[in-house]
Amino acid sequence: MKGRGLRTYAIGYLIFLYAPIFLLPLFAFNDSKIIAFPLSGFTTIWFSEMWNDAQMWNALRNSLTISTSTAVLATIFGTLAARASTRFEFRGKAGALGLIMLPLVLPEMIVSMSLLVVLLAIGVPLSILTVILGHVLICTPFSVAILTSAFQSLDKSLEEAAYDLGETPFSTFRLIILPLVMPGIISSLLICFTISLDEFIIAYFLAGADTVLSSYIYSQFRFPARVPAMLALGTILVLVSVVLLTIAEYFRRRGIAKTGGKDTGGFL
């Protein structure tokens, strides 16, 4: 009886969570410049307007460059830190990890402003490169978190068996450890890619004259006539993120199954 009440509440909660996202395609296909009820008719004009927008493609290219570089760099940094923290004990470990994970609990505005101050002081020109620097900083903690659980579920005796059979540390890592944590690495790449693609504050303040997708969308929100096309773009972006996350979740679960662990839940 109590369970049923909670279940109703949970379903209501999911509706609250998803309601805004369901409005996105509703108004992206609505034949009106004004985002309000009643709906006036079906159209794909906003999608073609978005598709023929050269600035959007330019921003998308920049965003993809940033997200791909960020995902690779953050995952490399994440792998190193996660391996170090799960396999070895050393002095200052807690402090080092604390600093690496700090962006997780620091408002992004502070990360972005402090980086901006230093970049301007040194005289580094703002571009998509500086955005990558900032994004790697905020994505690395997520990568560390995902890969720590991947490395933790490794059975240490597999590694020791490899040493006993004459493998070097490097070949052991390549032949035994890497394949076992591969699902975690793929999951980390996808999550970092998604975070970077979605991120706004750092991209907005550190990109200089370059536009990326999120700052482009933000700038277009100021013109009411451009809003429907942005909702069309948003619909596609949400679809892409959901697909990427589903793949990431698939690999995360497969990784846990592979190492014989028990699934305890989400990404964080």
Partner: peptide, 17 residues
Amino acid sequence: AGLMLISPTLTYAVLLL
């Protein structure tokens, strides 16, 4: 080994954070 492994990530965080 642990310090060596973590040092690239740590250096990055020190320099950029």
